[in-house]
Design a protein around this nucleic acid. Structure first.
Lengths: 124, 124
DNA sequence: TGACGGTAGATCGGATCGCGATATAGGTTG
DNA sequence: CAACCTATATCGCGATCCGATCTACCGTCA
């Protein structure tokens, strides 16, 4: 699944799939949005607030709504019936799978980077 | 330090610094490059190979060399004397600090996202 | 020796994406 | 009613990513 993700389908030809870079280009806002939605359906504005308290990042409105449109187009999130003036979005099953893979990979990279930093002072 | 980071100097005006998004725009290749260099100085080509085996991501040459130039301009890495045809780069002290902050933040977001995914099945 | 492939770096053009500015509009509080 | 918060949408600029393409050196295998 998720083959065409970002219009670029090049798998690394090796055995290991590359969840990093699966979203849009190289993660970023998409990761934050999906992670936020993993805690329950939210509309855009609530999402901004949640992301801000969760990651300290304030998503610009352009970034937010364009990312939402992209993610919906990719089937990773879906819009719910709008109440009031809110347009809530929910993580889809595919979105949950993709998010988990992405976060796992990201955590691995972070762990390895931190390991190298701590081990290091990098001789040579 | 790191004030001018990406040609955009807007600090988040609030008290809490936001390590996510500190690089270029929203991390990405920069994170991978810096994490790789945390394991020791490397030249561009070796970096690509290391990143590929570390994260399963193949950085395009354009991405790589442009990112290296940006990171050097930001003082996060520095070029060493070139041997043969190689131009090795090394993580600077500032780069190590920035990388650690970024990876810490990224790991926190990943952990929270995974927690929500596992806790969830997200009612409402 | 000459074709081939891996190493190594650089640059350009096109496409994507992030972001602030801007606009609209309803609700609340003073 | 002014000011501010909620809430969404869109446009344009600039930043960034990426594949293609070029140069160049090296080893090897026919």
């Amino acid at each position: 699944m998720l083959e065409e993700m970002a219009g670029r389908s090049k798998a690394p030809e090796s055995t290991a799939a590359a969840p990093l870079g699966s979203f849009g280009r190289y993660a970023g806002p998409a990761t934050l949005i999906l992670s936020s939605l993993a805690g329950g359906a939210k509309h855009g504005y609530a999402l901004t607030k949640d992301v801000e308290s969760m990651a300290g990042v304030r998503l610009a409105p352009g970034t937010l709504y364009e990312a939402l449109a992209r993610l919906e187009g990719q089937g990773l999130i879906e819009a719910l019936a709008s109440e009031d003036r809110r347009r809530p979005y929910r993580l889809t099953a595919a979105g949950a799978v993709a998010l988990r893979a992405h976060l796992d990979a990201q955590r691995q990279v972070a762990d390895e980077g931190l390991r190298r930093l701590d081990a290091g002072l990098a001789p040579t």
